[in-house]
């Protein structure tokens, strides 16, 4: 990849995560689900990078590997820490990981299950502070109040329990918790997909505000292309565990280079009846990651598939500056993006 090492906050190289399939009384391993299969990308400091794809494409597993909530099978996850060192997150032990935790935090999808119902806001938002050494209660209370204000909640609420709040407010609480330790990378896994439409906009605006205010870097994981387009600077598309295309948002949405991206963009219903158009409707269903087709995983559903597509696995190449695509025919195809 072109970008030089010292510009990057995070560089993922050849990441793989396979889950064994066990069967029978002795739980023998009879196969593997290739949830993430040779994925490489990078994130620059201060940007919003999105991973998109349909359910089961491996985007969530990828993000959990980066946070080391899941241990990757192989590959490197190079993260530049606040003091300028570059560490391979994939290779760290649990003890070595702990100081790194404060630099990477997560915003969850489900605003209900992500907050412990038996703890007050003060305890929820204050917990990362407490376990990372801020044992003085008064100082912690003050910082929690600051964080709540930052996400648009009244500090007076801190004695309350999560059950007193609506979905959107709970998501704000989750964001406050994620920001407690001044993280440099925030992984947001579908942060608005469980929210009502009118509340989604509030949370997206809040995330954009916080980014410019605090200089955060977002790894945004989502399936909703409209939301992704709204928030990201660069986007990567995944299909059955592999990265098929990665480009700056405008390039990806207006001049996609991968047939899957084209189909995905075409499938998004546009909220304007005057823009009704003939969509590209993909045939069949997503390939099984435990038993993927040969060559390019997308070829059985691809309307541009040629002979080579079923034989050889395409590699991710930089077709235009910053625009990476894994397709044998990418150079010759003229694909339609958003109109």
């Amino acid at each position: 990849m072109k970008a030089t090492q010292d510009q990057l906050l995070l560089e993922v190289k050849n990441l793989r995560k396979f889950f064994p399939i066990r069967r029978g009384f002795l739980q023998r391993i009879v196969g593997q689900v290739r949830a993430v299969d040779d994925v490489s990308f990078f994130i620059r400091p201060g940007e919003t990078f999105s991973l998109v794809g349909e359910s089961g494409c491996g985007k969530t597993t990828t993000s959990r590997c980066i946070l080391r909530a899941v241990r990757p099978t192989s590959g490197q996850i190079l993260f530049r820490t606040g003091d300028g060192r570059v560490v391979d997150v994939a290779a760290l032990s649990a003890d070595e990981l702990k100081p790194l935790r404060r630099e990477m935090q997560m915003i969850f999808q489900d605003p209900f299950s992500s907050l412990n119902p038996r703890m007050t806001l003060l305890d929820i938002v204050g917990e990362p502070l407490l376990v990372n050494g801020m044992t003085d209660r008064a100082a912690r209370t003050e910082r929690v109040a600051e964080l709540l204000k930052l996400v648009g909640l009244r500090p007076e609420y801190m004695r309350r329990f999560p059950h007193a709040f609506s979905g959107g407010q709970r998501q704000r609480i989750g964001i406050a918790r994620a920001l407690a330790l001044h993280p440099r990378l925030v992984v947001a896994d579908e942060p608005v997909s469980a929210l009502d439409v009118s509340v989604q906009a509030q949370i997206l605006n809040l995330m954009l505000d916080l980014q410019s205010e605090l200089g955060l870097t977002y790894l945004f994981v989502a399936h909703d292309l409209s939301v992704v387009k709204h928030i990201s600077e660069r986007v990567a598309v995944m299909y059955v565990g592999r990265l098929v295309e990665m480009a700056p948002t405008q390039d990806l949405f207006y001049t996609p280079k991968h047939p899957y991206t084209e189909a995905l963009l075409s499938a998004v219903p546009k909220p304007d009846p005057r823009l009704r158009s003939k969509r590209i409707v993909l045939q069949g269903s997503v390939a099984d990651p435990a038993n993927p087709p040969s060559g390019c995983y997308f070829h059985p559903r691809c309307r541009y598939a040629a002979d080579i597509c079923s034989r050889a696995t395409p590699t991710l190449v930089e077709l235009e500056p910053g625009h990476f695509v894994a397709c044998h025919r990418a150079a010759e195809l003229k694909l339609t993006g958003v109109v």
């Binding site: 609506s166 979905g167 959107g168 407010q169 009502d196 439409v197 009118s198 509340v199 989604q200 906009a201 509030q202 997206l204 605006n205 954009l208 292309l225 409209s226 939301v227 387009k229 709204h230 928030i231 990201s232 600077e233 948002t249 405008q250 949405f253 963009l265 998004v268 546009k270 909220p271 304007d272 823009l275 958003v338 109109v339």
Partner: peptide
């Protein structure tokens, strides 16, 4: 106004409805 559409320009502030349901 509050929905981000695939056809709208990116990274602008969305209109919001104040409060929640």
């Amino acid at each position: 106004r509050s929905i981000p559409a695939i056809t709208t320009p990116p990274r602008v502030k969305l209109h919001t409805i104040t409060g929640s349901i």
